[in-house]
Structure formats: structure tokens, C-alpha cells
Design a protein around this nucleic acid. Structure first.
Length: 315
DNA sequence: CGCGCAACCTGTCTGC
DNA sequence: TGCAGACAGGTTGCGC
């Protein structure tokens, strides 16, 4: 579930609720959360420690602790982080419920009564306690690459990591050590914006494609952030509320619907508008418009003229 | 080293 | 109604 916009939404809500407060209790309720290490040392390492900051790298939520420690949380597919502050009871569905959320995997209590809850249906989520700046850097160095909403993401930088790659663009975008934070939703949305075919080899992009893809990535992620993330199924923000990005999808989960770009390009005529297709790439559902998302050739050597008229697939 | 795919989990939905 | 099978936002480990 949570990709960069969802994790960043949680981070922004969590930070002001927990920064400067002290952890007075830490309960790891599911031992898989800290796998392969046992949960007890993690819980003991947290208790009594003050939270200094809440940051994010890729899809990792980083809880900065006094003494150079960091609790690195990853929500994987169905994880949620919820914050309950004592003075906000009744502010949302989450607070109204007096009962514990389902699938609770960890609970952290702070010195002013604030509670931070980690829930996760599928139990893929992880919590790692890293001591010292070096341990954090080492942990992240093999897991996350370029931060897409920073100035580090340029067409040149993207070109360097894509160079020589035969993997399809969709798989390339999902590789976190290249560009970090993009998941299945935003990969589809970025490729549509860039007018690139998900099966094009990553190494086939020329400068204009790299520029378009950078722009597509940034636009898709920023819209996701502005909408508070995508709630297709499980995702809720730190206050227990749904995001609204799912209402803004151009292609993701929209199989059979008209392509919004092609439709607006010829809005006078209703018929003949290409429709979104679903294929499987790297084992993941992939949605795209076969008409406006151009399939690039492996070698950028020969330039091929694109046909002007759409192949009339009757549908 | 790059790449594709199974595995890790549990819940929900669809079709017979 | 019951049940098998497909599918779900992510990452890792293994084999080629």
C-alpha cells in the first residue's frame, strides 16, 4: 500500500505529535515485526528515550531518537501508523473507537499520554532499531536510491542509473535502489504522464524521455501528496482518515476506461477513444494507454516514424 | 551484476 | 451457500 506520498503524509502528521516527547512504553506484539531479531531488545532500546525528529527516506519512516538512534519503520503492503493524542479524542473515527484497532502489531506510549500504533494485516511490515549515524547510513545505502522530490532527481541522474538496463521501465521504477519511493500506483501514473510504455527497456530512453519521466514522477508524487495519499483498500493516514488520490488516477485500476489524455485530445468525438489496458509486468498489475504511451526500441539508433492514426480496435 | 520469479502473510472478492 | 482460486499498495532471496 504505502508509497512515498502515503508515508510522507503520515510523517507530516506524526512529527508534530511526537517530536520532543519521551517514549515511556514500547510493546512489540508481533515478533515478526523485528525479524530476524527478537523484539525484546528493540522495545528495551526505545523505552525512556526522547524522539527528536521524524524523517523519511524512500518508503522508510525514520524515528530519530536521542543518542543517535533511529527506529526505521517500513509499512510494506498493509502497514499503518496511527497516532492517538490525549487532547484529540473524538476528532476522527480512530479516536472515537474505544476498542483497539484490529491487527495491532506494536504500541508505543509517550510521556504526555500520546499513543503511536502500528497495525498490519499481512504482517510484512518491519521495525529496525539502528544505533549511530553509520548504522543508519549503511542500512539505507543498500535499500534506497535517489529521493525523487529532491533536486537530486535530474534527467542526467536518471539517465545514469537507467543506462544499459534491459528491464522494462515499470520494473525499473519499482527498484528502490534506483529512484526511491515509487510503488505500483505511482509508477503507472508517472509513465502515463511521461507518455512512456511500461515495457520499454529502461536503457532505451533518450534525453527527451528522461526529462519527461522526471516530470511525470514529480507530478504524480506531488499530486499524491496534495491528495493525502491513495486509499484503494487499507491505507489510512496517521489520523485514521482516507486519502483521495484514488479519485485522481489517470490509469491505475482504470482498465477499460477511456484514456484521459487521448479523450481530451479529441473531445469532440466520443467514439474511437483508446481505452486503458491492464497487463502484468514483473508480476505486478500494470495499467497504461496503448495509444499514447510510446514503446521505445532497444537501440535508439534508428528513428522510427510513428503512425498518426490509431489502430481502430473496435471496442 | 542484472533480471525474473517465488516466497513471505492474511483478507476479500469472483466465479462455479 | 460453499469453496477454490485470483488478487492486493513491497521487498528479499534464489537461480540463471
Amino acid at each position: 500500500m504505502p508509497e512515498l506520498p502515503e508515508v510522507e503524509t503520515i510523517r507530516r502528521q506524526l512529527a508534530p505529535e511526537v517530536a520532543g516527547k519521551r517514549i515511556v512504553s514500547a510493546e512489540i506484539l508481533d515478533e515478526r515485526l523485528t525479524r530476524p531479531l527478537p523484539p525484546d531488545p528493540v522495545a528495551r532500546g526505545l523505552e525512556g528515550r526522547e524522539i527528536e525528529a521524524v524523517e523519511r527516506r524512500g518508503k522508510y519512516l525514520l524515528i530519530g531518537l536521542e543518542g543517535e538512534g533511529t527506529l526505521a519503520l517500513h509499512l510494506r503492503m498493509t502497514g499503518n501508523v496511527l497516532v492517538r493524542s490525549p487532547d484529540r479524542l473524538g476528532a476522527s473515527r480512530l479516536y472515537e473507537s474505544s476498542t483497539e484497532p484490529r491487527f495491532l502489531r506494536a504500541r508505543f506510549g509517550l510521556d504526555d499520554g500520546t499513543e503511536v500504533l502500528f497495525t498490519d494485516v499481512r504482517r510484512f511490515g518491519t521495525a529496525v532499531l539502528l544505533e549511530g549515524a553509520d548504522a543508519l547510513d549503511e542500512y539505507l545505502s543498500t535499500r534506497v536510491g535517489i529521493e525523487p522530490l529532491s533536486t537530486d532527481l535530474t534527467p542526467e541522474a536518471l539517465g545514469r542509473i537507467a543506462e544499459g538496463r534491459a528491464a522494462p521501465l515499470k520494473s525499473f521504477l519499482l527498484t528502490q535502489t534506483g529512484v526511491a519511493g515509487i510503488g505500483n500506483i505511482y509508477a503507472d501514473e508517472a509513465l502515463h504522464r511521461a507518455e512512456l510504455h511500461p515495457l520499454s527497456p529502461a536503457g532505451s530512453m533518450k534525453h527527451e524521455h528522461l526529462e519527461a519521466l522526471v516530470e511525470g514522477i514529480v507530478d504524480a508524487l506531488e499530486l499524491g501528496l496534495a491528495e493525502g495519499g491513495s486509499s484503494i483498500d487499507d491505507y489510512l493516514d496517521a489520523r485514521g482518515e482516507r486519502g483521495s488520490m484514488q479519485d485522481e488516477f489517470l490509469v491505475h485500476t482504470r482498465e477499460g476506461r477511456p484514456c484521459p489524455r487521448c479523450a481530451s485530445a479529441r473531445d469532440e468525438r466520443e467514439e474511437g477513444v483508446p481505452t486503458i489496458e491492464r497487463i502484468v509486468v514483473g508480476g505486478r498489475s500494470t495499467y497504461f494507454c496503448p495509444d499514447c504511451q510510446v514503446k521505445l526500441r532497444k537501440r535508439p539508433r534508428r528513428r522510427k516514424r510513428r503512425r498518426a492514426a490509431p489502430a481502430g480496435s473496435a471496442m
